[in-house]
């Protein structure tokens, strides 16, 4: 069969590695990002950018949330993009930077974790997962220099610690562990400032959800590339909660009720809750 791909001939070869990426790089490198030819000119400005993601740890887990806006320069190119991805039962990642490259990275990373788990019969350790993602980011450095920058954020429930962990990256890789909260993307400065005042240690997951929604609202308030909750179209941030019970993306109705409560309070006090002065 002429259309039979070359990698099909190597399915039964023992590659000596449980990595999906290693296998594909060996036998079907054209599928991988980062192996494509260099672009004649940087294109970063013309491709939609994904913006703010926030993550906070809570009692027995971690919560991650992302707004729904993608921008190309001054234009909103997408108002309902999703930037928080489930990567396995106990972890998720969010992306900031070039949306298409980030989505591709998340998709590949998802397969990478699952592939290892199925072949080895065990999941990678949380550190192992975080390191693996660092390699992906590092491999994207060439593309990043041409404007296709992706900076992810990784959050996981760690079984050994029975708690949530958050890892950040830069264009060269990482990971950098952040406790107890972290934010990435264009609105991250405002989100982090907001979390600094709102974060409470050992909060219940539903309180942490309110924290991240408040932080995203504050980011959208001051950063034009971050989208606030779209009340007319009923487009809400994506919120994921990971605990010992696994990954759960909150259904829209649940987020809607929290957001509507928050908006009602902001109608009276537009700057949101205030922290005590001393």
């Amino acid at each position: 069969m002429a259309s039979q791909q070359a990698w099909m001939n190597n399915l039964f070869t023992n590659t000596g590695s449980s990595s999906f990426t290693e296998f594909v790089r060996g036998y079907a490198p054209e599928m991988l990002p980062g192996t494509r030819e260099a672009l004649p000119a940087p294109v970063g400005d013309q491709i939609p950018h994904a913006t703010t993601i926030v993550a906070v740890t809570c009692a027995g887990g971690v919560v991650m949330a992302g707004d729904r806006r993608a921008t190309s320069g001054n234009m909103i190119s997408n108002r309902d993009i999703e930037k928080v991805f489930r990567t396995d039962e106990y972890s998720c990642m969010g992306i900031a930077g070039t949306a298409s490259t980030g989505i591709e990275m998340a998709r590949l990373y998802q397969v990478e974790l699952e592939h290892y788990e199925k072949l080895e019969g065990r999941s990678l350790s949380t550190e192992g997962k975080a390191n693996r993602l660092a390699t992906f980011v590092r491999n994207n450095l060439g593309a990043a220099m041409q404007g296709l920058v992706v900076v992810p954020i990784f959050a996981a429930y760690d079984e050994r610690l029975d708690g949530g962990r958050i890892f950040g990256y830069d264009v060269g890789g990482g990971p950098y562990e952040h406790q107890p909260y972290h934010s990435i993307g264009s609105g991250s400065i405002f989100a982090r400032g907001s979390l600094k005042k709102l974060y409470r240690e050992n909060s219940a997951p539903d309180e942490a959800v309110l924290m991240v929604l408040q932080a995203l609202y504050d980011a959208a308030d001051d950063d034009s590339a971050t989208g606030g909750p779209d009340v007319t179209r009923r487009i809400w941030p994506v919120v994921a909660v990971i605990t010992a019970d696994g990954y759960r993306r909150l259904p829209d109705e649940e987020i809607a009720s929290v957001v509507e409560g928050m908006l009602a309070a902001r109608m009276i006090d537009p700057d949101g809750p205030t922290a005590p002065l001393r």
Partner: peptide, 13 residues
């Protein structure tokens, strides 16, 4: 193992 590779490559592609 080959089955997992086959499935993952196709699912990714």
């Amino acid at each position: 193992q080959a089955g997992i590779r086959y499935a993952d490559v196709n699912g990714y592609n």
